[in-house]
Design a protein around this nucleic acid. Structure first.
Length: 434
DNA sequence: TCTGGGGTCCTAGGACCC
DNA sequence: TCTGGGGTCCTAGGACCC
């Protein structure tokens, strides 16, 4: 390799990736499942994750459950249990943090960590440190992880994907070429179908061919995200780790597809209303208020109608938002049109505690409603989410109850999580209608 | 890939200003 | 009124991720 003069590990970055994470959590939670084909995603009708025992039958992520069951009739299919996955996720981060404070919680089943400079203290090579982390994770969490070690995030990510499950792939700078040689450029983290097609047009099929293009060509042909990836593939550290964790949201949204699709506009509106309520619950949990909302209706033909609405006074109260979007809903909703989904996005978020009162006291009504919501949230805390909900959401909520989307959530094995579990739902889903 | 849900960042282009 | 140049801010939409 001819480029650069980067030492093998100017920075040492690892990427940790849980193998079939959701399914592995189910097994760790319930050891009688070990060694069996387990599939998660029952509530969605498609495979969210599956154990390697299921994969051996040809089951893959994203496959319809019906097909999965045909391939693997003995499969144990369970609904997703995000509370449990989240607990294992935080345990994973905590274990990695024993080795370094520089940990980026990238997603529920992945993290990056910078271990630069820890060799002396650990009396180990970087590769052995990675192996030690991997061993701790497996021993303590009862599942396997695949780890990549290299000098940038993009290369570390290639490493963790290189050998799965339970792989540990070290890609020192001088060896990058052999890992990029046969790697289709579209497999690189951050290069999606669109950019891959563009690169293909220019004769670039593999990551190595991409890396070997000149800087002039790259910077004049591509956009910043892709240029950064090119640099990282060459071993140049560009993407800092985001170790601060999630402090707040830029935007926050709730979307729901309903089946079957419907032409009943009052029903469609109730779905939107329910999404608004859910989004507001999340806003309040983060002490945020939205200054702008946008909602959409999605037809059965997958066309969208979007409306953006600025709010004079930031709010986290669903009544305010439903009032604000009602007119536009009536304006854009077409009769005799099959709708399949609605969604709401809250943006321009501000701290809910610092909402400015306007001179005419228009915020005062919002404020008193907000006091009511303090009580609503307290009730939800005791009796479960949606113990209380808006009349405008009624149709959607009734359907959820009918379908058992909520309320029948089984109490999970909890001895494993003493002191860690969030409170359990108490099975009182419907207290009343405001 | 007959397509679920929740995010982030980047960029082109319009609005507006001097 | 037309013409010119240059800057900032904002937004819609694209692209990507898990």
């Amino acid at each position: 390799m001819s480029w650069g003069h980067v030492s093998e590990y100017k920075r040492a970055i690892i990427h940790v990736d849980g193998d079939s994470f959701f399914a592995s959590c189910e097994v760790a939670k319930n050891p009688t499942l070990r060694g069996k084909p387990v599939i998660t995603g029952r509530e969605r009708g498609i495979v969210s994750a599956c154990t390697y025992e299921a994969k051996a039958f040809g089951v893959t992520t994203g496959m319809k459950l019906k097909q999965a069951r045909e391939l693997c009739p003995d499969a144990i299919v369970v609904p997703s249990d995000y509370e449990t996955y989240s607990i294992f996720s935080h345990r994973m981060y905590a274990i990695v943090r024993r080795y370094t404070p520089q940990v980026e919680e990238y997603s529920i089943d992945e993290c990056f960590a910078e271990i630069t400079g820890t060799r002396r203290m650990q009396h180990m090579s970087y590769e052995n440190i990675a192996a030690a982390i991997q061993a701790d994770l497996t021993r303590e969490l009862g599942m396997t992880f695949s780890i990549g070690l290299s000098c940038t995030k993009v290369l570390a990510k290639i490493g963790s994907k290189y050998k799965k499950p339970n792989g540990l792939t070290n890609i020192p700078f001088s060896k990058t070429a052999e890992y990029l040689k046969d790697l289709p450029v579209g497999y690189v983290w951050g290069i999606g179908p669109n950019t891959a097609s563009l690169l293909n047009l220019h004769g670039i099929k593999t990551a190595l061919q991409f890396v070997n293009r000149s800087e002039v060509w790259v910077t004049s042909t591509l956009t910043k995200p892709t240029i950064d990836i090119w640099r990282e593939l060459r071993g140049e550290f560009v993407n800092e780790l985001d170790t601060a964790g999630k402090q707040t949201y830029q935007s926050l949204s709730k979307t729901r597809t309903f089946t079957p699709p419907s032409t009943d506009l009052s029903y469609v509106f109730s779905q939107l209303s329910k999404n608004v309520e859910n989004a507001c619950i999340k806003l309040r949990r983060w002490n945020l208020a939205a200054s702008e909302i946008s909602f959409f209706l999605k037809t059965q033909e997958f066309t969208y109608q979007h409306v953006r609405i600025p709010l004079i006074i930031p709010t986290c109260v669903p009544q305010d938002i439903i009032k604000a979007l009602g007119k536009d809903f009536v304006r854009i909703a077409r009769p005799n049109t099959l709708y399949r989904a609605t969604g709401i996005t809250m943006s321009h978020l501000t701290d809910a505690h610092h909402i400015q009162l306007d001179l005419f006291g228009a915020a005062s009504q919002t404020q008193s409603v907000q006091q009511i919501y303090d009580q609503v949230d307290a009730l939800s805390e005791r009796y479960g989410k949606h113990a209380v909900f808006l009349g405008s959401s009624l149709k959607a909520m009734q359907q959820d109850l009918h379908l058992g989307e909520r309320g029948d959530i089984p109490t999970r094995v909890s001895t494993l999580f003493k002191g860690e579990t969030a409170r359990r739902r108490l099975g009182i889903p419907f207290l009343g209608v405001v």
